[in-house]
Simulated scan of single mutants.
Amino acid sequence: MRILDYAEHALSEGRDARAACYVECEVGGQVLWGVGIDPSITTASFKAVISAVNRAMR
């Protein structure tokens, strides 16, 4: 797997803000997007990568 593009942003402001992360990945010759949403940007990033890998597995 190779990350081709990465973007992130906050969905709201304040203490309860959530982050959205978008990744474009190449998995097994396929180019796929994944999205992750979580209060932690690290976890949102991980969820986005897992989302892209899951799409490749379909």
Rank of each mutant, 00 (worst) to 15 (best):
M1L: 13
M1C: 12
R2I: 01
R2T: 09
R2S: 05
I3R: 05
I3T: 07
I3C: 10
L4A: 05
L4D: 05
L4S: 00
L4W: 04
L4V: 08
D5P: 07
Y6D: 02
Y6V: 01
Y6A: 04
Y6S: 03
A7L: 11
A7C: 12
A7V: 11
A7N: 13
E8H: 10
E8R: 08
H9W: 13
A10S: 14
A10F: 12
A10R: 14
L11D: 03
S12T: 11
S12A: 14
E13L: 13
G14E: 06
G14D: 05
R15N: 15
R15H: 15
R15V: 14
D16N: 12
D16F: 11
D16Y: 06
A17K: 11
A17T: 08
A17Y: 08
R18E: 13
R18Q: 14
R18T: 15
R18N: 15
A19D: 05
A20V: 12
C21K: 06
C21A: 13
C21R: 04
Y22R: 13
Y22C: 10
Y22E: 12
Y22F: 12
V23E: 00
V23K: 02
V23T: 07
V23L: 08
E24F: 05
C25Y: 00
C25W: 03
C25L: 09
E26H: 06
E26P: 03
E26N: 02
E26R: 08
E26Q: 12
V27L: 10
V27T: 09
V27I: 14
V27G: 06
V27S: 06
V27M: 08
G28E: 12
G28V: 04
G29N: 01
Q30A: 10
Q30F: 03
Q30N: 10
Q30E: 11
V31A: 05
V31Q: 09
V31D: 04
W33D: 12
W33H: 14
W33V: 13
W33G: 13
G34E: 03
G34A: 09
G34H: 04
V35E: 14
V35A: 09
G36R: 00
D38F: 00
P39V: 01
P39F: 01
S40V: 07
I41Y: 08
I41A: 10
I41Q: 11
I41V: 15
T43L: 11
T43Q: 12
A44Y: 05
A44S: 06
A44R: 00
S45I: 01
S45P: 04
F46K: 15
F46M: 14
F46E: 14
K47H: 10
K47C: 09
K47P: 03
K47I: 08
A48H: 05
A48R: 05
A48L: 04
A48N: 02
A48M: 06
A48K: 04
V49Y: 07
V49H: 03
V49L: 13
I50D: 15
I50P: 07
S51H: 10
S51I: 02
S51T: 02
S51G: 06
V53S: 07
V53W: 09
V53I: 13
N54D: 10
N54R: 11
N54I: 01
R55D: 01
A56K: 01
A56Q: 01
A56Y: 00
A56N: 05
M57R: 12
M57A: 13
M57N: 13
R58S: 02
R58C: 00
R58V: 02
R58M: 08
